[in-house]
Structures are given as C-alpha cells and as structure tokens.
Amino acid sequence: MVAVSCFLGACSTLPTSGPTGPQIVKSAEKSSTNIAIVEVSDASVLPPAPEHAQWILPENTPPPTDMIGPGDVISIFIYEAGVPLFSGTVSESGGAFDPSVKVQTLPPSRIDDNGDIVVPYAGRLNVAGKTLLQVQNLIRGSLHGLSQNPQVLVTLQQVINNSVIVGGEVGQPGRLVLQTNRERLSDVLALAGGYRGNAKDLLLRVRRGPHVAELRLSDVLQNTEVDAIAYPGDRLTLLQDPLLFSVLGASGRVQQVPFSRGTMSLIEAIAAAGGPNSSHGDPEAIFIFRYEKDDAGNSKPVVYHFNMMKTGSYFLAQQFALRDNDVLYFGNAQANQPSKLIQLISQLFSPIVTVTNAANALSN
C-alpha cells in the first residue's frame, strides 16, 4: 500500500510525450521572447501564401555570340595581293581569288587577361568586348599602309568568354558554350545532361558577377517568368536541399518529414505525420511553430493553434501553406497522465500476480 501511495502521489511527475495545449499557450504568454499565439479560427488570421520567388539578379541584354573576351583563342588569316608583307610558308588560295593572292595563317592567339593580342607588324591590340567582324577591321586598319589592301579573316577556335559553368547535381558538369545567347536556365541544365534527383529537393544557385541568388528548381521549371536567360560568365550550381518539416509531440514518432511536393498544406502535413496518436494525442491541440518577418523585417516567433475538433479547422488547414523548417507539434492529451499511471501500476503488480498464480497452481 505504501508503494501504491507513492505512485499515486507522483502522478504529476509521470513522463509525457510533451506539454498539453493549455500548457503551450500559457508558457508562450509568459515567455520573455514575445512569442505570438495565433488562434486559427477563421481565414482572416491565416498568413499570406508565399509569393512566387523571383531572381535578385541584374538582367542584362546578352552580348553577341561572337563577342571576344579574355581566355578566348582566335585564328587569324591574312590575305595579301602582290608582294606579301608576311613571309614564311604561304599557300595560294583558289576559287574566286586572284592567283597572285597569298594567305598567311598566324599562330592561334589567346586573348590575355587585359583583353589584348599581339599581331606581327600591327603590334598589341585590345580586342576584348569586340565582335569577330570588329577585330577583323581593327587588324586590317592596323596593317594599312604596310601591305597592299590586306584582307583579314578571324575565327573563334576556343570559346571561353561566351560560356557558363554548370556544377552540382547535373549529368555532365563543366563548361558549356552558349550557342545563341538565348538559352534559358532550364535549357542550360538540359544541355548539361539534365538534373539528378527531384526538382522540389534541388536548389539552383546562380552567381552572376558579384551577385548570388538561389531559387528552388521546381519554381524555375514551373514558372516561365522565373526561367531567366543565361548570361555569359554565369555559374550555375544545383544543390541537394530538400524542403523539410519536423514532427514532435504526441504523434507516435519524432522525425523530419520531406515535402511530398513543392508546396504543401497543413492538412497534408498532418496526414504525412500520421496525425495525433489515438491513445495520448489531443486533436484540439495541433500547433505550427515558425519564425516570420514583421513589418520592420525582423524575425519573430509565431505559434499557430488549430483545434481539429472543429469542422471549420479542416478547411482552414487546407489553406494554410507549410514552409520549410516548420515544426508541427501534436499536443499531449490532458487525460494522458491517469492512463499512464494505470499502466505503471499494472506493470508494478504484474510480477506479483504472476507469482501468486504460480503458487496457487503448485498448491493445487
């Protein structure tokens, strides 16, 4: 009897799966961190649905595809009539050219970090930011007066400037040349062998000069307005970053659950978590914990309370958009303590009852 009295007196100290709904509300009201409790009883208190994400990147008009920049390698062909300025091995051109016309192929020229190349007799020329036609005219003008009406042809042998770097969760990471400068971000990923994994779990990071922006890949693929044009020099990286929400309290399991798709409602989250435990969960005490921005842009803790014993709450839960890193909490039922006490007493007396039954069986 003494043991039973001790257990009855310790009822309030029995372990639970977490605080009850009233305990959460009471502790939040007394908290010094100004936690806001929102009783979700009608649609007017629902937080606004997340807006479509947009890039925070400079949107420049893509340059011509044959614009030259540092790192590019070009080939230069100089055609001369009469006495050639350039000596060395020459080959006579055929076709429509006059038989006296000679062509000189210069060694491949790489544009240096300053955007310059060196052409014999013409000297050092700055060609960065110019098209092939402009470079041809520049070289030709530099040779004027040194050769008889030279004609110049410049071609791109290796393209560095008009390219993007693609890495991360793609089939073929590396450098990719933009052929038209009208390729969109989704086109670049397709040309890089496609993405690996689920689009909703991937984050597309774009570095454009000093600017860096991130967007969920599913948003890029589903929203054509977000699928921006790739710009030469862009660096695209696909990162594995799934959307998750945490499940705590009287749900029967504590876990992190990935979003089933790009956007989820609270009712879908409750279903994915299995709902409150039938033996000790309280459907009147379902909470969402999150940080939200106030009017000044500061983060503040907010707790949304749903009473799922009310029919209207099911419709409100369908309109409540879940966010990444939300915490879904199932409150502990207030009747949970007595039930646990009964289980504990049952476990306490179970060995005694077993021994008593065995002794009675032997005496018979």
Rank of each mutant, 00 (worst) to 15 (best):
T224M: 07
T224I: 11
E225A: 09
E225W: 01
E225K: 05
V226E: 03
V226T: 12
D227Q: 02
A228K: 06
A228L: 13
A228C: 01
I229G: 02
A230D: 05
A230F: 07
A230I: 05
G233I: 10
D234N: 04
R235S: 15
R235A: 15
L236G: 02
L238G: 05
L238A: 07
L238T: 04
L239E: 11
L239W: 03
L239K: 06
L239T: 02
Q240Y: 14
Q240R: 10
P242Q: 07
P242I: 07
P242R: 05
P242F: 03
L243G: 00
L243S: 06
L244D: 03
L244E: 11
L244A: 01
L244R: 12
F245P: 04
S246C: 00
V247F: 10
V247L: 15
L248H: 06
L248R: 09
S251C: 04
G252S: 12
R253G: 01
R253Q: 11
R253L: 04
R253I: 01
R253W: 00
R253C: 00
V254G: 09
V254S: 14
V254W: 12
Q255E: 15
Q255C: 07
Q256N: 14
Q256I: 03
Q256M: 12
V257G: 02
V257F: 04
P258I: 02
P258A: 09
